[in-house]
């Protein structure tokens, strides 16, 4: 059984076919790249998996269960966490509040538990505060803990997006261009952090244009115009003629 699998996944916007009959799979424990030129349909793929968009046809399975028609909050509940390419944040929340807010499911306090301030709720909140600080520490955000998220520099905002996704305790994490707009130092730090997350047992699917990411990938799927053009290892991808032609425009 694959951790994540799509079969014949197709998405049309009006007459435009953005995702065309895509068969995809990834395994548990894997860190996989989902690459392709701008406009290839990568973000659309993430939106289809997480229920933000509904496929025109085809099926999506996660851990053996069909999630083709699941809603975003249901997908999150099943253990798929994600970041967004354009990286929206809870801008009016502090960095710390952004992360604590993300502990909505694990642990989950029911509305009556919250309202009546029961022991379970208080214990959950205590755990959440502690755990959120650990996440901030792990991602190097501790020193901006009390800043408003909207005031953070771009690179930090990206990392905060990852922190938030991590706080949902995902089994599978979808990262949409996590290194976009980062300086070299931040890139090195983030790549290291991503590979550490994998070491913690989180399976990761990552969309990224920065090829430094290849160093930590187990496998790669490359798409172009919504169709798969390559599937294999990072080394294999570097040497693949189709990939070189369409992706790098023959420049590599």
């Amino acid at each position: 059984m694959h951790l994540l699998e799509t079969s014949g996944l197709t998405k049309r916007f009006g007459g435009l076919t953005v995702m065309n009959d895509l068969d995809f799979s990834m395994e548990e424990g894997e860190i996989k790249g989902f690459l392709g030129p701008n406009g290839a349909g990568k973000s659309t793929f993430f939106n289809l998996i997480t229920g933000v968009l509904t496929p025109s046809s085809g099926h999506i399975f996660y851990a053996g269960k069909e999630i083709t028609k699941s809603k975003p909050h249901q997908v999150a509940k099943m253990g798929i966490g994600r970041t967004f390419q354009l990286n929206p944040l809870f801008g009016e929340f502090t960095v710390f509040e952004n992360v604590t807010a993300a502990y909505h499911l694990r642990p989950h306090s029911t509305v009556p538990q919250v309202f009546f301030n029961t022991k379970t709720y208080r214990q959950n909140e205590e755990y959440i505060a502690k755990s959120a600080d650990e996440v901030l520490e792990f991602l190097g955000l501790q020193h901006v803990r009390n800043e408003l998220a909207k005031n953070l520099p771009h690179g930090y905002q990206k990392i905060l997006g990852v922190a938030r996704a991590l706080a949902t305790k995902p089994k599978l994490l979808l990262l949409d261009e996590p290194l976009g707009g980062m300086n070299p130092e931040e890139i090195a730090f983030s790549i290291d952090a991503i590979s550490k997350m994998r070491d913690k047992g989180i399976s990761i699917l990552v969309v990224e244009h920065n090829m430094q990411i290849l160093d930590i990938l187990d496998s790669v799927t490359v798409i172009s115009f919504g169709q798969k053009i390559f599937e294999g290892t990072p080394e294999g991808m570097r040497q693949d003629q189709t990939v070189i032609d369409t992706y790098f425009g023959g420049a590599v």
Binding site: T50, V52, K71, P72, H73, A76, K77, G81, R82, F84, P88, L89, F90, A101, A102, H104, L105, R164, A165, A167, T168
Partner: peptide, 9 residues
């Protein structure tokens, strides 16, 4: 969108 992605119905 973000709220849904962390599991908020």
């Amino acid at each position: 969108d973000v709220a849904s992605s962390i599991g908020v119905n």
